[in-house]
Design a protein around this nucleic acid. Structure first.
Lengths: 151, 151
DNA sequence: CTAACTGCAAATTCTTTGCATTAGT
DNA sequence: ACTAATGCAAAGAATTTGCAGTTAG
């Protein structure tokens, strides 16, 4: 079932703003904030307000169409969940100096398997129904390393 | 070198508020927000302001004495980094329904090793200097599962 | 038709800043 | 003494809410 079905399936309505917001998210390669989305939409659809963007993102997050992330700057960022995304499931590599984020999905030998095993062990041990996970590595990117070296 | 040394080592001063804030964090079992810390301190030290708590947390985070987390509610939460903590390095298991967070550090067979291997592979592949990682699993805790069942 | 959705402006909430005062070293 | 650190009040920034008008089904 596509996201349209998910929305209508629970008594909600398909609207122009929702359609556009998801299409922006679907085309995005980066991790967009509410304001990012608002500005992209605003050029072609100035009638759509920031409030609607926030409300739509909240709704879609609750419906598990979107994941909501926080990378340290104070704005929340969103991306489609695996189920609805063109991109494969991925983890993040975050530069703590410049904020650059690399998505990687060509998991190292054993990484994916290990996560799956851990998930299974944890769900048994703590009796949790695990639905997802989030793995990020933090460090200094090549560019920042170079800049730091020059000083 | 303890955190006191870290602070003095870079020309900063040891003060009563800093001492108290770290001791609260050191004793905490949960993940405290700035306000949590402020209230705990306030009972015995009403002279210490919330601003100082924020400034201290910011400083200590920059010095890598603290890790700053975000678990979805909008407040930031803090805990001592492995180097300064009584607790072992751990990962998180978060209930998406009630917000409960379980720390686990008795890593499953292979989990710790796999993270270390992945870290090494990524740092070579992307030429990143990786300093830390963050792994969380999300799901529904036993209590919430039960509650959902009753309905 | 009617209830969900929207936009605007105002309100909230968390966090940061300006500035005069206090207190480590 | 010198300057970092503090507390207060005020400012800032991201997000949420109240409400009257709009629109999908």
């Amino acid at each position: 079932m596509g996201w349209r079905g998910a929305i209508k399936g629970c008594g909600r309505r398909m609207t122009v703003p929702r359609e556009i917001i998801i299409s922006v998210l679907s085309d995005a390669t980066e991790h967009l904030s509410a304001e990012d989305i608002y500005f992209r939409i605003h050029e072609t659809n100035p009638a759509i307000g920031l409030t609607t963007v926030y409300r739509t993102l909240e709704l879609l997050t609750q419906m598990r169409v979107l994941n909501k992330f926080d990378f340290g700057d104070k704005r929340s960022r969103y991306e489609l969940t695996d189920q609805y995304s063109k991109k494969k499931h991925h983890h993040h590599l975050v530069c703590t100096q410049c904020g650059r984020i690399i998505d990687y999905s060509d998991f190292a030998e054993g990484e994916a398997c290990s996560i799956a095993c851990t998930e299974k062990e944890l769900s048994e041990k703590f009796n949790f129904s695990i639905t997802s996970h989030y793995l990020s590595f933090y460090g200094i990117c090549p560019d920042c390393k170079e800049k730091n070296h020059e000083k």
